[in-house]
Amino acid sequence: MSTARKMKGCQEHTGYAYSVAMSVKHGLLALLERGPMYGYQLRVAFEESTGGTWPLNIGQVYTTLSRLERDGLVRPLPENDSGQRPYEITDSGRADLAVWFATPVSRTDRPRDELTIKLALALTTPGVDVRAVVQTQRGATMRTLQEYTRLKARSDGASDMSWRLVLDSMLFQAEAEVRWLDHCEASLVRYAVPAAGAPQVAPEAASDEVSRR
């Protein structure tokens, strides 16, 4: 299959949106497992748990709560004196949450990686210096890694543990990207551009990456 056709397949994939919706749903269920909360409290607790890296608007919270209620996973409680309506998790919600925690996240549900697509296309697009693309990206990712490390250096308290786990996840992902870019650069050093008219062959790294996705 040509690179362009593989890309077309990537664009049609909607797994990412599904994955994000699922994560918010189970995020709210996990928070309600601590005890009943109303919408605004859920929003604040969600953002605290993820160190503010995943902002939620209040509309998303209420939309998700409605769906959870429809599916019998949460139930509304009477309004409090301030007119806020707390929700509590149901037994079905607890069972659903337990399954979520017990099930690994599939790589195929994650977002398509624009960078992979960009490198694969850079290689086959006339006039594009693919090594420059690799170096520019590596510099940017390295800077990101440096900044995540600064943030990590600042967060020492035991109360920051959830935030540090989120930060570590971002650190390891950025590190993996730098390692992959190093690998691409080394592969490109050995790569000979095919003669005009000959079938294009992507370098080992880029083609492997695309075919896995």
């Binding site: 170096q135 590596r138 390295m142 800077r143 440096q146 490390t149």
Partner: peptide
């Protein structure tokens, strides 16, 4: 890279030449 990220600047060497340098952003 995760260890290098503790530095203020990261220089990349290849074949004895500095091919790239990265410094941190101003606003993490």
């Amino acid at each position: 890279a995760r260890h290098a990220a503790w530095a203020d600047r990261v220089v990349f060497l290849r074949d004895g030449v500095i091919v790239d340098t990265s410094g941190p952003l101003d606003q993490p």
